[in-house]
Design a protein around this nucleic acid. Structure first.
Lengths: 196, 196
DNA sequence: TACAGCAAACCGACTGGTCAGTCTGTTGAT
DNA sequence: ATCAACAGACTGACCAGTCGGTTTGCTGTA
């Protein structure tokens, strides 16, 4: 009927909707079949298992986030401006992709070992990305030395938590998040952002 | 054989161990039976369902955390010292109760609506507690005005994220967490903590 | 002190509904 | 004719919860 790429994407799309709304365990494969208007056969042709289907969604979003952050960093000069750009890109991407964000930050938590591994992997990856540029900022002299391992994880947590709240309640608006959270984070390492 | 309180606690204890290690869905009631050396009957005599058993663990820890934070706050003077005490108590309690912390911060996430409601409830509760005393600190003049709604949630997230990491990897040690995270959070609202 | 009566506390084999994954096809393009 | 891309009825493992039965401790009675 349609081309296979289309079917695969319809499946991913419906899975994204259902998983993000109802969570992994409360979403039945048959529901994904119904919503995507495909069939059990189609799903299991494109994905070997429910688990892998979910992981595919996680990967999809992780790649997107990674790409966006890297692009943002590349356009800035060395030092704290890069950290700032990374945080902005991160918040911006979460803001633009609400459903995948919820999958990543909420629905992927507390599932078994496989998902947890992937989640921690992605999480650590971004924390380390932030950490690298924080270290750079310290080297360059933009900020004074801090325990960047803890700072980077604390930052991720701060962002996640505010974003999660926004995902659920729609408040506060992304605009207000950005304008409050960013200065907050930068201040936490004694960086004055008043140049913006 | 034993008194009923004993059985109930053995069940809660085993459930805590298993849920925190394997998560809600990967823990079978029969495993709790085995580990607690009781029986299906005993469990369902004390708890109406698996769901309620898990919720009981959440409540248990939420009460403990609440009590500890309130006690810590009461022993301090108005203003930023109270905020400081609350954060310290929070980190301290998570540190002392690793398994319940994992239940609360990890395993309770992404389960259905009932658990999510409870989790957001508890989360918001503590965020609001922090917020109240942040507002007080602003009123008293310890710090200049900030968006306390976002700050309080960001703080909770920062704490959670670092604690979760510690729960999984055992690093960094609670000592280092406290001595890095606390100044970080306080600095984020421009409060100089050098009096400590 | 013995014992019946009774209920709370507990035991564990069993069940019934659920659902991921399978399998036997069908369709349509090359 | 062949095979990728589906369709959808079916299965069987899994597991929360049940239920008839047993034990334990307590209370009143003689």
């Amino acid at each position: 009927m349609d081309n296979p790429q289309n079917t695969r994407e319809r499946i991913l799309d419906s899975a994204l909707n259902l998983f993000s709304r109802k969570g992994y365990h409360d979403t039945r494969m048959d529901e994904i079949v119904e919503e995507s208007e495909t069939s059990k056969g189609a799903i299991y042709f494109h994905f070997p298992s429910k688990e892998r289907l979910f992981l595919a969604l996680m990967d999809q979003f992780a790649s997107l986030l990674e790409r966006r952050i890297r692009e943002a960093i590349e356009q800035e000069d060395e030092g704290m401006q890069r950290v700032r750009a990374a945080l902005t890109a991160c918040l911006d991407t979460f803001g633009k992709y609400r459903l995948p964000a919820k999958i990543m930050l909420v629905q992927a938590v507390g599932l078994g070992a496989i998902f947890e591994k992937k989640r921690l992997e992605v999480n650590d990856h971004f924390a380390n990305l932030i950490r690298t540029y924080l270290d750079e900022a310290i080297k360059v002299g933009d900020i004074s030395p801090v325990d960047t391992e803890i700072v980077s994880h604390a930052w991720m947590g701060a962002i996640y938590s505010v974003v999660i709240r926004w995902v659920y309640t729609g408040e506060p608006e992304p605009e207000r998040i950005l304008s409050t959270l960013l200065p907050l984070l930068l201040r936490s390492v004694s960086y004055d952002d008043s140049i913006a």
